[in-house]
Design a protein around this nucleic acid. Sequence first.
DNA 1: TGGGATAGTGACAATATTATCCATATGATT
DNA 2: AATCATATGGATAATATTGTCACTATCCCA
Lengths: 127, 127
Amino acid sequence: MYHNKIPQALDYGVSVTMKVIGGKWKPCIIDCISNGINRPAQIQKAIKQASLRVINQQLSELLDYEIVTKESFEGYPLKVEYTLTPFGNTLLSVIDAMQQWGDAHADKVAEIAMNRKENVTLYRNKT
Amino acid sequence: MYHNKIPQALDYGVSVTMKVIGGKWKPCIIDCISNGINRPAQIQKAIKQASLRVINQQLSELLDYEIVTKESFEGYPLKVEYTLTPFGNTLLSVIDAMQQWGDAHADKVAEIAMNRKENVTLYRNKT
DNA sequence: TGGGATAGTGACAATATTATCCATATGATT
DNA sequence: AATCATATGGATAATATTGTCACTATCCCA
């Protein structure tokens, strides 16, 4: 596992939250699991842009931080289910606030990003 | 300016929000400005861990995304003030939600981070 | 026998972000 | 004349994060 060289300060609430959900796919994964998409392969189908490897990496961190629990079922075919813990559930309102703001302002942000000639793909083409 | 090679998808609300406030110091800077700490040098004093250079970089992005406005005053000594736009103000509730969650769970997150032997500095030492 | 589905991981490459160093400019202060 | 404060930005180094490839393992299906 990679170890930071520069210490991360957890002296500010936002930093603490970012420590937990700051990964590129973590909010998305939490979102999936809260909606009953709880097997790695299913999650990967829901987030096609992320590879299974990356999803596993992020899941294992969410597991460490006790945001999700993992249940492995015996036998084949292999079956594993991730579920939100009560602690993980407390994150939903935060993610929801972020989700709502982003949805509400996606057009504007996308337009600015385009003007900056950033390499973004839009959720839809403006007409 | 750096240009992404891999396109960033803005097809998910959280991604849009992260695009705007995802920088390491941006929420903190927005926090400062909303509390009347609105000159670069002042902000730097409030966030000693970040250099003035970095703060300026993040400010210029916040400016591009119309989260803040910038007012330059004539004459010397130089004086510049950044202020939240109405658009920027709409972010405060999001940042506040993140702040509250982080504050509420800082102890637990810090403990887990320590168990993982991550390189973190705690907001206080547990007794 | 040759895939394909399932889940998982080590090693490393690629990319992205942040930090550092140095430079400009101007006037006041020591 | 040197230093400091103010604000800003180029160039590059350092760091951190994410993605890719290859591999293990087991069973089912064609």
